[in-house]
């Protein structure tokens, strides 16, 4: 006989499912976190490829011939500033201040575009010098690693613009809040990957 106080309990006492779920939030944030973890595996593999092939110049240019650290410092500053302004956007969102949040998001987007502009200028400069991916294993792995990061930042900016339109249209709905928190994870994650890029590729490349 089923216990009348627990009508959901199976008759013979077997539980074939977890009766009590520990967290009540929708799984989107955790799912997005899992995506970021798999994305960091992609970057990890690209870093490994660069670590293995980065010294094979094939009589082409070496990192110290190509990299301009002052410009990389400026790009790093843009990305770091965009991280803190996104943080302020999340805080103002929690306080329900939609206008302020949108302003912080726009500032974030401008810094993101500044970073992308620096990167596009660097790639154009490299192409002008003839340091294209086909020249050496070093340049192939460099373009692939840094380009993949740049593509991520570019898609982050597109996502940010889409979110701004959605917030403008529908306001700070729970769905929009969740989307902004997901993009927050994505944006800070890209800044984290960039730490690896400037330490390992640029600074180490110039020293060696």
């Amino acid at each position: 006989m089923a216990n009348p106080t627990h009508p959901a309990e199976p008759v013979d006492g077997f539980d074939f499912y977890v009766a009590e779920d520990e967290h009540h939030e929708p799984g989107t944030m955790l799912g997005f976190w899992m995506y970021l973890m798999s994305d960091s595996l992609i970057f990890g593999i690209l870093f490994a490829v660069y670590a293995v092939l980065g010294a094979n110049y094939a009589a082409g240019p070496a990192p110290s011939d190509l990299f301009e650290i002052e410009k990389i410092l400026l790009a790093t500053a843009f990305l770091l500033l965009s991280s803190i302004t996104y943080g302020f956007a999340v805080i103002t969102m929690q306080e329900g201040k939609q206008k302020a949040m949108m302003l912080w998001l726009i500032v974030t987007g401008v810094f993101g575009l500044g970073f992308l502009a620096m990167e596009v200028m660097e790639f154009m400069h490299l192409a002008h010098l003839g340091a294209v991916p086909g020249v050496s294993a070093f340049l192939s792995s460099f373009w692939f690693l840094v380009g993949t990061h740049g593509l991520h930042v570019a898609s982050g900016v597109v996502w940010l613009v889409v979110l701004l339109i959605q917030v403008q249209k529908h306001g700070l709905t729970p769905a929009n809040k969740r989307r902004i928190l997901c993009l927050s994870l994505f944006w800070h994650f890209l800044d984290l990957i960039w730490i690896g890029v400037f330490s390992f590729v640029y600074l180490t490349g110039v020293l060696l």
Binding site: L80, I84, G87, F88, I91, S184
Partner: peptide, 11 residues
Amino acid sequence: HGSYRSYMIGF
């Protein structure tokens, strides 16, 4: 999701 303080410390 942090406060101004924690974001500033991190920054």
